[in-house]
Simulated scan of single mutants.
Amino acid sequence: MRPNPSTAVAGMLLALAALAAPALAQNKPADTGKKLYCWDNARGERTCSDTLPPEAVNSARQEFNARSGLRGAEVQRALTAEERADAELAAAQAQVDAAAAETRRRTEQAMLSTYGSEDALRRVFNERAAIVDNNIKTAIYNVGSLREALATQLSVAGDRELAGQKVADKQAGDIRQRHTELLAQLRLQAAFEQQRKALDVEIAETLARYRELKGIAAPADAAGAPASPPG
């Protein structure tokens, strides 16, 4: 009796499947999901486990493949709030520094293309210098006026005390108020004078950079002191 062709084909397919099964099993990737964690505990002791306890989540650790033993990753410890703030500040400062460098580059390009001489560049600072100089003059005038008025009030109060009379509360209050105003004006005067010094430095540095970019030598009087604030 001749074999049934359909039965013969089915038998061949079953035989091929049986031969392919071991090969497929060998090519199947191993389960790599299981990890082994190693970290230092609070006492500095090395600890390893296939589970990561909550207290170790923020600790520096190494992760290994539990099946192969190969190291898969190294995780740094979580930053503290202060460290995060410092890192954010450093990143912000780096951004500001980069922006400042770019601004300076553009400013220098504009300076070269816009100003044909040092005098033209100096005129840019004239308005700022005039404002600061006027503030200094006003503060000096106010200090002088307040000092003179305070001296007069103190003299009158002194005469009353020498005459055996009591200094009135209102008069004493006026003296204290005038003294407070005088101190405030003195602080303003000092601040304005400091602004003028800073502006002089800025002008000198800008002119020096301009000469450097232009490739020109400084004039003979460039080393002279900048104009001082009005007295």
Rank of each mutant, 00 (worst) to 15 (best):
V9D: 05
L13A: 03
L13S: 00
L14A: 13
L14F: 15
L16I: 07
L16H: 01
A18T: 06
L19N: 05
A20Y: 07
A20N: 02
A21R: 05
P22H: 12
A23F: 12
A23V: 10
L24V: 05
L24S: 04
Q26S: 10
N27P: 03
K28L: 13
K28Q: 15
P29C: 02
P29Y: 07
A30Q: 13
A30G: 11
A30K: 10
D31M: 04
T32W: 12
T32E: 12
T32N: 10
G33F: 13
K34L: 11
K35E: 09
K35L: 14
L36Y: 10
C38F: 03
N41P: 03
N41Y: 09
R43E: 08
G44F: 15
G44V: 04
E45S: 11
E45T: 05
R46N: 05
T47P: 00
T47C: 08
D50R: 12
D50K: 08
L52C: 02
P53T: 04
P53E: 07
P53A: 06
N58M: 11
S59W: 09
S59L: 15
R61W: 08
R61E: 09
Q62F: 15
E63G: 04
E63P: 00
F64N: 03
R67S: 09
G69L: 14
G72W: 08
A73D: 15
E74H: 15
A78V: 02
A78Q: 13
A78S: 12
L79R: 12
A81F: 07
E82H: 10
D86E: 12
E88S: 07
E88H: 07
L89H: 01
A90Y: 08
Q93S: 05
Q93I: 01
Q95P: 01
V96G: 01
V96I: 10
A98D: 12
A99F: 03
A100G: 00
E102I: 01
T103I: 12
R104N: 03
R104F: 00
R106S: 09
A110K: 09
A110T: 06
M111T: 05
L112Q: 10
